[in-house]
Simulated scan of single mutants.
Amino acid sequence: MKKMMVMMVMMVVSEASIIEKTCKETPDFNLCVSLLHSDPRGSSADTSGLALILVDKIKGLATKTLNEINNLYKKRPELKYALDECSKRYKTILKADVPEAIEAISKGVPKFGEDGVIDAGVEASVCEERFEGKSPLTSLTNSMQKISNVTKAIVRMLL
């Protein structure tokens, strides 16, 4: 019984150290650790698996942002031009960038995965720039840029 408990503790320490070791190589250690520990797959993932988890986080945030954009059309019709641009940008993340990153990382071609991840951050930035003055999407845009930067750092470890 004691031996089994020691082995379980060693596994947990080993799993945590893989996430922590990987996240130390990213621009935002705390965000990286938080995102990876929030997904049950993180505890048993290798570097490619960690990158795929983060791509899923990009997908989730893009979906959340697109839903917020759709809500803003009703609440803030004066922002239609900027919201149209943002809608287009976030649909690109969901329909092009995320699938490109998933396929490339899964097939062992991380360079193309990196391109998709970088583009997700660029698309979010372009969306933010379309607002004249205060954007109602700044928080979500900043989150997308941060997650994209963390993901990019992990994908680069695969190169």
Rank of each mutant, 00 (worst) to 15 (best):
S34I: 02
I118P: 01
Q145N: 12
V150N: 01
V55H: 01
K64D: 09
V155M: 01
E20D: 15
L54Q: 04
N30Q: 12
E128T: 07
D28L: 09
A16F: 13
I93A: 06
T22P: 02
E78G: 09
L36F: 05
T138K: 14
A120D: 08
T47H: 06
C32S: 07
R41W: 12
E114T: 07
R156C: 00
P136C: 09
T22M: 07
R156M: 01
V155S: 01
V150I: 04
N67W: 14
G42M: 07
E15D: 10
G133L: 07
N67P: 10
A51L: 03
L50H: 06
I118Q: 01
N67V: 11
L61P: 00
K146Q: 07
K59C: 00
G113N: 04
H37N: 14
P99L: 04
K3R: 04
S34D: 08
S17K: 09
E78M: 06
K74A: 12
L83Q: 03
F112A: 14
S14G: 05
E128Y: 09
G60W: 03
L50C: 04
V13W: 10
G116M: 02
I118D: 07
L31F: 03
D28M: 12
L140N: 09
I105F: 01
I102G: 00
A51Y: 02
K59A: 03
K2E: 14
L79H: 11
A16H: 11
G49D: 10
E100F: 04
A82H: 07
K24V: 06
A45Q: 06
G121D: 00
A120G: 04
E15N: 11
L79E: 13
Y73Q: 03
K152F: 07
K152I: 03
K75C: 05
I147D: 01
E85D: 13
K107T: 08
E129T: 12
A51G: 01
E100S: 08
A120T: 02
V13S: 10
V117T: 02
A45H: 05
D46Q: 13
L140F: 09
A16V: 13
S14I: 06
A120V: 05
D56Q: 09
E15A: 12
Y81I: 12
I93M: 08
V98H: 00
L83S: 03
K152Y: 06
E15C: 10
T138M: 15
K64P: 04
N142M: 15
A104V: 02
N30Y: 08
E132D: 15
L140R: 04
S34E: 10
L50Q: 03
P136I: 11
I154G: 00
F131K: 09
R41V: 11
K21I: 10
A96C: 07
M7G: 07
D46M: 14
V13G: 09
R76M: 13
D46N: 15
L137T: 10
K95N: 14
D46H: 15
Y90R: 02
L66G: 09
A101W: 00
M4C: 02
Q145K: 13
T92A: 11
M10G: 12
E25A: 14
G121Q: 01
K107L: 08
Y90H: 03
E103Y: 13
R89N: 11
E103N: 15
K91S: 15
Y73S: 02
S38P: 09
N142P: 12
N70P: 11
V109H: 12
K111D: 10
Y73I: 03
I18G: 03
T92Q: 10
